[in-house]
């Protein structure tokens, strides 16, 4: 298969980037999208140029490192698929493929297709945890959790932190990312203790990072590689309002 690749190249955060076009021949339909880029990079390096920088690690759709905006879709045209799981057989021979980095004020471009997602980290630092010290845990089965809730908590916890939700949102909002964690903990007894405080702090941090606001278009759910439901956003909103209404003043 032959392709024309239009790839965003940007030297660093300070410089302005631009698109560069690369024709690529003899791509095997068996290649994954990232292997196709490896193949391109090999040719670029052998020609004496700098290869396209992009993030990747596990290459099996679980680490959340990779994330490219391919032909107008985060992680490309397939649903429930990360960029590394996407294969070239999903494209038409001769197609032009436009590859861009995630675009968001809270995800500044570092180089080429690599963006800085540390804003996601800071949201987690603000409250994405249950305060349980090592060694303090009670016996696991002393606190039964219904299967329904446990399964739901798992669905929320499946987030890989890739940032596709932000990239897919017309407002570049991080609601689905924050909601997944908040909902996971808000649903289970262990997390309920500090649920109000958690939602308060995480939402505050999310707003401070410069993400947009949710207007319920649900693009995030559509392009989430793990299919995380926007129902969790509703749950987060509920938690948020109840935290505002019910929070007691600290003495």
């Amino acid at each position: 298969m032959d392709f024309t690749l239009k790839i965003w190249r940007q030297k660093n955060a300070q410089t302005k980037g631009s698109f560069k076009t690369y024709p690529l021949k003899d791509v095997s339909p068996e290649m994954s999208f990232l292997e196709m880029l490896d193949y391109l990079n090999k040719q670029i390096i052998e020609q004496g140029d700098e290869p396209v920088t992009f993030e990747h690690d596990c290459r099996e759709g679980i680490c959340g490192s990779c994330g490219l905006y391919i032909n107008g879709r985060p992680h490309g045209p397939m649903r429930n698929t990360t960029t590394c799981e996407l294969h070239m057989r999903e494209f038409k021979d001769g197609e032009t493929i436009v590859i861009e980095p995630w675009r968001s004020r809270a995800f500044p471009v570092i180089k080429d297709l690599v963006v800085d997602r540390s804003s996601f980290e800071r949201i987690m630092h603000a409250g994405g945890f249950i305060s349980a010290n090592t060694g303090t845990a009670p016996e696991s089965n002393s606190n039964p959790i219904s299967k329904l809730i446990a399964d739901k908590a798992f669905d929320a916890a499946a987030c890989i932190g890739c940032g596709a939700c932000v990239a897919a949102c017309q407002n570049s909002s991080a609601m689905l990312y924050a909601a997944a964690k908040i909902a996971q903990y808000a649903m289970i007894p262990q997390g309920k203790v500090e649920a109000k405080e958690r939602v308060d702090k995480m939402v505050k941090q999310m707003d401070a990072e410069g993400f947009g606001f949710c207007s319920n278009t649900y693009g995030c759910e559509f392009d989430c590689p793990k299919g995380i439901s926007v129902d969790f956003i509703a749950l987060m909103n509920r938690e948020f309002f109840s935290s505002k209404v019910c929070k007691q003043k600290q003495a």
């Binding site: 845990a137 696991s140 606190n143 039964p144 219904s146 299967k147 446990a150 916890a157 262990q190």
Partner: peptide, 22 residues
């Protein structure tokens, strides 16, 4: 065993049966 207890306390969503046990 301590590891499992600790993870449960940290909210790790291990599979559970219908009675709510791990």
């Amino acid at each position: 065993n301590d590891v499992i207890d600790h993870f449960t306390a940290l909210g790790v969503p291990f599979a559970r049966d219908y009675g709510g046990s791990l």
